[in-house]
Design a protein around this nucleic acid. Structure first.
Lengths: 193, 193
DNA sequence: TCTGTTCTTGACTGATCATTCCAGAACATG
DNA sequence: CATGTTCTGGAATGATCAGTCAAGAACAGA
């Protein structure tokens, strides 16, 4: 019974997410967000709250969108270890093809805000936990199928893969050449040989 | 032939380094730096230049101090792989004992600034290169001593260790429990078993 | 067409940002 | 003790920051 919004909130949030993803929280100004989202000040504050609230919504969107979608790739049928190898190599190639070097919003946020912002830190931890669980699930299957050695533990391996991929992100943001990046990933995966 | 400084520039730079290390570049204000360094505005600008110049000096101090010192541990005699294991476990325990979760200034800076600031990015890359070289040197010795399998390449392994440790830092900044951190490191090291 | 609600717009606020500048204090040299 | 240089302290700058607000536009329902 009133005037409808002239913009799509999901679309605007998506734009905001990409700005935070690219520049980080502190380095992003409301001006940056406004021009990227192409809406007005009042609309932004009315719809999303303040900068911090908008950032939390952007994180949620990232986790439920980008991350969740990628993790479904780990549910594919076939040999478990092959699925993992394919997944990790795919993530690397995707990263290498991004000229803007945005990396991963979760990793970026972990580094910038986790130690200082408890609520945000909790979300980061939860997101990383979801990643670990996704690896864990495939690795349990690998174990059952006899694809792992006796001393290899799915939980420890899941944590290892989670951590190693975060390292890949750091090296990639640091501008490491593709060849060195592939060395890291292939050597990391050689644990399954 | 004039009034001497009332403060020790090295000491002040060290304080500044710790602030940047703890809070990051953007989140650190000149006020933060002034109060931590316990000097006055004029003195800061006269001695170190502007914020960016101060940050570069802080980075250099970190690389030539903290990092270089740690890397000498990789030059110790004895079995090469044991040296690496000791080094990496030591780094982990050192990190876990830091309640402030500062992490590593190089990794923090890689994530915050490398993609956006070329000059800073170059320093990050150079620092990571030095780390890789330090690993490489020990790994070449390991190879010569027959501590590595035939298919294991010192260069790839050095890159792998460099990257994996960056991942450890991210996970640690994200607040990952010590137990999970040790899983990551021990699984990562199991590549040498 | 009229009414009521919500959205849009842009000016505005006060705080904080990095940086400059200058007056006076402090010291080494003559 | 006098002089010249450098350092100190703090006020002041203009830019930018996040966030507020009021006036008017736009639309849905009556």
């Amino acid at each position: 019974m009133a005037r409808p919004k002239e913009f799509d909130p999901d679309e605007a949030l998506d734009k905001a997410m990409h700005v935070f993803w690219h520049k980080g929280y502190e380095a992003t100004s409301m001006e940056d967000l406004l021009s990227a989202m192409d809406i007005n000040r009042g609309s932004l504050y009315d719809t999303f709250g303040d900068k911090r609230a908008l950032f939390l919504k952007a994180m949620d969107r990232y986790c439920n969108g980008m991350v969740a979608q990628k993790l479904t790739l780990l549910n594919q049928p076939g040999p478990a270890l092959d699925t993992i190898r394919r997944f990790i190599r795919g993530m690397l190639e995707m990263a290498l093809s991004d000229q803007t070097r945005k990396g991963c919003l979760i990793a970026n946020t972990a580094m910038e805000l986790s130690p200082h912002e408890k609520e945000i830190g909790n979300r980061v931890a939860r997101a990383l936990g979801r990643v670990e669980e996704a690896y864990h699930k495939v690795l349990v299957r690998a174990k059952q199928n006899g694809e792992l050695r006796k001393e290899q533990d799915p939980r420890a391996l899941a944590r290892y893969l989670t951590g190693m991929m975060q390292g890949v992100i750091v090296m990639y943001k640091a501008g490491t050449p593709a060849e060195a990046m592939r060395d890291i990933v292939e050597t990391g995966l050689s644990i399954f040989d």
